[in-house]
């Protein structure tokens, strides 16, 4: 596929969603973070050298339609199970970053039937800490410049000149922010049910965490990893909450290496 081509709009489970498709071969489903797909392009291109990358904008995000009644990541994970079936994907590697990692964990906790690997990059979605404190940085209560500082080792990879952004990009940013509030306002960035379902993840899982993550601390990542049977944890140097944006080469290398191990399943033999 021509790498200059932008996302195409496809109808999935009755909703028009934009999907960026790159590369050939083994399918990789990339689930972008709450800040949208902008900034993940380089990582997607690197993965596409070795695999067929399917990178949708989540319903409600970017320019993807929000189906009526969809209001939780639980709903969203059923949408993605439909997508996986409708696109006929098998032996699928699911890679989710931050909020996208939450979706990935919800998908895998429901069924791993068509999955072979799960990679979670600074994933959120489960609650591990004290009840009187959020485990995660509250972006809705933090000035933008401050959460950018805490989320990135170097915010330059993300910062844009808002003044000169085209209307379409501003609309996508506004929709990303609104959709994040719809799905993650309260309970903030987690589903109270997810932690108890993580044991159902029956494919090899890899957690990659930015060594300087000021949004979801390393200790949170380690707790999350410990709740997924057999999962491995790796720190990514010189990266914050979005390691695939700040260190795309290193993260792509990890993902491709992990995915190229001979596919095998643990536990479930169905």
């Amino acid at each position: 596929m021509d790498s200059a081509e932008g996302p195409v709009t496809e109808k999935i489970a009755g909703a028009n969603v934009e999907i960026l498709r790159r590369g050939k071969g083994r399918p990789v489903l990339f689930l972008h973070p709450h800040i949208g797909i902008h900034g993940s392009e380089r990582f997607i291109e690197l993965l596409a050298r070795e695999a067929q990358v399917i990178a949708p904008s989540h319903p409600g995000f970017g320019h993807s339609e929000l189906p009526k009644g969809m209001s939780s990541v639980d709903d969203m994970s059923y949408f993605y199970l439909d997508l996986i079936e409708e696109l006929g994907l098998r032996d699928l590697v699911v890679v989710g970053a931050s909020f996208g990692g939450w979706i990935a964990a919800e998908i895998a906790s429901k069924t791993c039937e068509r999955l072979s690997r799960l990679v979670l990059l600074g994933a959120v979605g489960a609650k591990f800490g004290e009840r009187d404190k959020s485990d995660l940085l509250d972006i809705f209560a933090t000035p933008r410049s401050r959460w950018e500082e805490l989320s990135f080792r170097d915010p330059a990879v993300w910062l844009r000149d808002y003044e000169s952004l085209p209307e379409e990009e501003l609309t996508a940013m506004a929709r990303n922010r609104e959709a994040t509030a719809l799905f993650a306002w309260n309970p903030y960035m987690y589903n109270p049910k997810l932690k108890a379902r993580l044991h159902r993840i029956r494919v090899p899982a890899l957690f990659l965490w930015g060594a300087h993550d000021g949004f979801a601390p390393l200790s949170y990542g380690r707790s999350f990893c410990a709740a997924v049977p057999g999962a491995k944890f790796e720190e990514i140097a010189e990266a914050g909450h979005f390691p695939h944006m700040e260190q795309p080469e290193a993260v792509a290398r990890h993902v491709i290496g992990f995915a190229s191990d001979r596919p095998r399943r643990r536990g479930d033999t169905r």
Binding site: Y162, E163, L170, M173, A174, R175
Partner: peptide, 11 residues
């Protein structure tokens, strides 16, 4: 609205 929110990102 998304339209107003987009405008507010700018200024």
């Amino acid at each position: 609205s998304v339209k107003d929110a987009a405008r507010m990102i700018k200024a």
